[in-house]
Design a protein around this nucleic acid. Structure first.
Lengths: 334, 334
DNA sequence: CTGTTAGCGCTTTCAA
DNA sequence: TTGAAAGCGCTAACAG
């Protein structure tokens, strides 16, 4: 509850000197600095953020836009962002709402108009939604995680390569009938990342001369989603593939559970590869492409901070690689 | 970028009148009100939150303290909170960090000292951590979700009754050898909710004269946690229980997967009950006690708003009931 | 290196 | 019902 004036009085200096000493900006003698810091400490002084923001235009807050928190990937990301923000003394204002949901647009408007943040980390924003353009109008630096957008720094998994490598892994094991499990029923509406994963899968199939065998089975990115989709796909023994690349580990796990229910042995009769290296992958023995959302979150904060300090800093565009983690869900074609 | 002064000028009134018109406080003629609102609209005016907060002391922000975002329960809760906050035009400042984690205390101090929020929603705070006391010092209303604390409103599941009912369900089916799966290895360190669930389980067992058969098998509240713990528990056919109450659905699902791997039929040889009605419960046919974290989140916001508007409003203490949802994971003892 | 002086944009008495 | 004026607590020129 004490104000800068109190601190200044106690230290026997003016408010401006106190301010300078506390912010480390401008010249202050070592002795004065010490006196002021001590006074502040003794009074338990903490600057009123509203007042500071009014005076400087800065808020020490980062907005995080997230489609949802209930998937492993996003939750991990969020944790990483939070950790890194904390070390910088920045606050995290969360705006979570599904793409295209009713509240989402309203949320974004609300967020932007109140401009309560110095920077934005936007996760999984679809370029065609033009959300980035609206954010850019707020003239705050932006880092996207997922699809890259003009005017923003970005971090993304090399989705295409990831799916390519995963598919090749199956091909190398001798599989020729490999299905891709994931994406919406209407492939046109596939999210950016999903579309790239499908692309990588198709490329790899084509390179191996298997383009005719390629098939894409829509599935939600969740365990029940993978379970349901795999149920249909694996039901008929005649048409069942021997290899499966899932859009993410959750979907892959769902498929594995479905397979087990149908008494299809993994990896004996069916090899499954996921993408993520989800917390559950280990227990299911799932072969997968590992990515590090937590690290991505931390990196996003660092990139953002650079541009918050220097708005003219160049935009960064990071593409992350993933590594194949082989467990027991894949084996040579029987 | 336009300020209240701009709006006032455009509407041909003073700043104070404009402010009154926009905030709906005080007397303003209908005609003036209309003119001001129009002017504000045309200019796309939005009050600078920092300035408003400096003048009023209020921030239109609610802090949410969460142990983690990667579990279904917390993620759902968060979504509910966000939705409801949005309808009230409030912003959500997130502080997530595991109980007792290194950053957690720092986070809380940071949050409190900056007092950037008008109220707090604290999820799963353990009473003995004294975090609530520290929050109360910030003199902001608090709603806890989970353990109740003096001085705060609270919403909690009736954990004890829930576990009691779930256990009774198994007893009614004729089971006598029923284990509880969950809680830490050292029962003293069980979280508040977990401890109550264990209590409810023990009570029900005792009431049925089964106290000697009661046993508690520690397990993490996660699928892999349930899987690992069930592996040990179910391994020996001699000592294997016929009924299992898991601390949450994730643990229950893990146990079901473990059972299936060991070719233990559910519900033929083993009945399993969970708590939550998790997104996955349906697909696993899991019998469970349903709770509604999303609704709990919304309710928390409403309770908080009441006390934000009127600090003298009485503290609320809501205890929510859960309902038994019977699926296919439970059956009469074979 | 330090103090004085103006605000930042809004709300809120108080008088009119 | 409206306006003038005084801050809220901080920062940032500008002098000194």
């Amino acid at each position: 509850m004490s104000t800068l004036a109190d601190v200044a009085a106690r230290a026997g200096v003016s408010k401006s000197t106190a301010s300078r000493a506390l912010n480390g900006s401008g010249y202050v003698s070592a002795e004065t600095h010490a006196r002021v810091t001590r006074a502040a400490q003794e009074l338990g002084f903490v600057a009123h953020p509203g007042a500071a923001s009014l005076a400087t235009g800065r808020t020490q807050t980062v907005a995080v836009i997230l489609p949802r928190a209930d998937r492993w990937y996003f939750a991990e990301l969020l944790d990483g962002v939070q950790e890194e923000l904390l070390t910088g003394g920045l606050d995290l204002m969360l705006y979570n709402g599904a793409d295209g949901s009713e509240g989402r647009a309203r949320m974004l408007d609300h967020a932007i108009s109140r401009r309560r943040f110095d920077g934005v980390i936007a996760v999984g924003i679809e370029p065609e939604a033009h959300e980035i353009e609206r954010l850019l109008k707020a003239r705050r630096p932006i880092v996207t995680i997922g699809p890259h957008s003009e005017g923003a720094s970005s971090i993304m998994l090399d989705d295409r390569l990831t799916a390519h490598v995963a598919t090749e892994h199956l091909i190398d094991l001798g599989h020729t009938d490999i299905a891709f499990l994931g994406g919406p029923a209407d492939p046109q509406r596939a999210g950016f990342g999903d579309a790239l994963r499908i692309r990588g899968y198709l490329d790899a199939m084509a390179e191996a001369g298997l383009e005719d065998a390629a098939r894409i089975v829509p599935a939600e990115s969740s365990v029940p989603g993978g379970y349901a989709a795999a149920g249909d796909l694996l039901g008929n023994k005649r048409t069942r593939p021997t290899g499966l690349l899932a859009v993410c580990d959750e979907t892959a796990v769902g498929a594995m559970i479905a397979a087990r229910r149908m008494a299809i042995s993994i990896p004996g009769e069916l090899s499954v590869v996921g993408i993520d290296d989800h917390q559950y992958a280990e227990m299911f023995g799932l072969t997968t492409m590992r990515q590090h959302p937590r690290e991505q979150g931390r990196t996003a904060v660092r990139l953002l901070q650079e541009r918050m300090q220097n708005p003219d800093a160049p935009l960064a565009r990071r593409v992350e690689a993933s590594a194949l983690v082989v467990r027991n869900s894949t084996a040579p074609r029987g």
